[in-house]
Nucleic acid binder design. Structure first.
Length: 294
DNA sequence: AGCCAGGCAAGTG
DNA sequence: CACTTGCATGGC
């Protein structure tokens, strides 16, 4: 086993690992302990998290201004990529003078947008429809347990997120047994499309933002909102602003002028209000901030 | 007991 | 294009 630690400088905005991994952006990391979010925060947020990435287990925790990791091979490049450690947060928020965004930043400085692998991100957000964050996470755990490759590490057995091929072979009934409900056929059919290479994430990356959002809707169970989540949390479209129920409420309460009646037009308006190029960062801070108060 | 949760697909007008 | 309806499941 290899291990190491990455220094986190304040210059680029630091890191809040717990908020990054538990704010409903990614469902691919789990805590080694079973503590609740609040308990972990009370303990200084230094819990170990793990994921299975590229067939290998990676553990990480934040302590004493460093991001410590344990893995079978050097995990530094992977962590920098998945946690977007090179994003310069002060620069990203430089142009936004919005007070709600400022409050959210003050509450969770160092939270970053994740950069998840495409297929797991896609399936996670297909499952997210009308579902609480905690249950989406549980669905991911169940999918990995039932259909994911097993990986041994440090005397324990872990499960990778299932491949498109494996999930394409699953039956709707099997997926319903895992509690996916009406999302079961969406996941199965989208896995088939992904396995067939119907929509290539590499090609989507090269598109203009709104074209990319349309292209992802070739998958089943993917509308505007889920497409925006995949663009933001997996494909590097930092301008994407998923309009979920929380953000819709925020628009009513704080940005009534941005309500334009349709997803496309409201999206344009709120993207402008959130600073354009990096509007998705503002969105994610506001989402986490609002969801954690009350 | 009823309502709601990071919505979407399919069907109408 | 806008609008309506049905859809699983679990927690409060």
């Amino acid at each position: 086993m290899e291990s190491g630690s990455i220094p986190l400088t304040d210059a680029s905005g630091g890191l809040d690992l717990q908020s990054t991994l538990e704010s409903g952006q990614t469902f691919l990391w789990r805590r080694e302990d079973g503590r609740a979010y609040e308990e972990t925060a009370a303990h200084g947020g230094s819990a170990w998290y793990y994921t299975v990435a590229e067939g290998e287990v990676v553990r990480a925790r934040q302590r004493d201004g460093r991001l410590e990791w344990e893995a079978t091979t050097d995990a530094e490049p992977l962590l920098e990529e998945r946690l977007r450690l090179d994003d310069d947060l002060p620069e990203i928020f430089e142009g936004t003078d919005d007070s709600l965004v400022a409050d959210a930043r003050e509450a969770y400085p160092g939270m970053r947008i994740v950069n998840d692998p495409f297929f797991p991100c896609l399936v996670s957000f297909i499952c997210s429809a009308q579902m609480r964050v905690e249950r989406i996470h549980a669905m991911g755990t169940a999918l990995a347990r039932e259909f994911g490759e097993t990986v041994g590490f440090d005397g324990e057995t872990y499960h990778a997120f299932p491949t498109p091929e494996r999930l394409a072979e699953a039956t709707e009934a099997e997926l319903r047994e895992l509690g996916l409900g009406y999302r079961a056929p969406y996941v199965q059919r989208s896995a088939e499309l992904a396995a067939a290479g119907e929509v290539s994430p590499a090609a989507v990356r090269e598109m203009e933002y709104e074209d990319a959002r349309d292209a992802l809707q070739a998958f089943v169970g993917v509308g505007d909102k889920v497409a925006d989540c995949v663009l933001l949390f997996s494909l590097g479209f930092l301008e994407a602003v998923p309009l979920d129920t929380w953000i819709q409420t925020a628009i009513e309460d704080h940005y009534p002028d941005c309500e334009r009646g349709s997803y496309a037009e409201t999206s344009r308006a709120i993207r402008r209000a959130f600073g354009g190029e990096y509007a998705g960062y503002a969105q994610t801070y506001v989402f986490h901030y609002l969801r954690n108060r009350e």
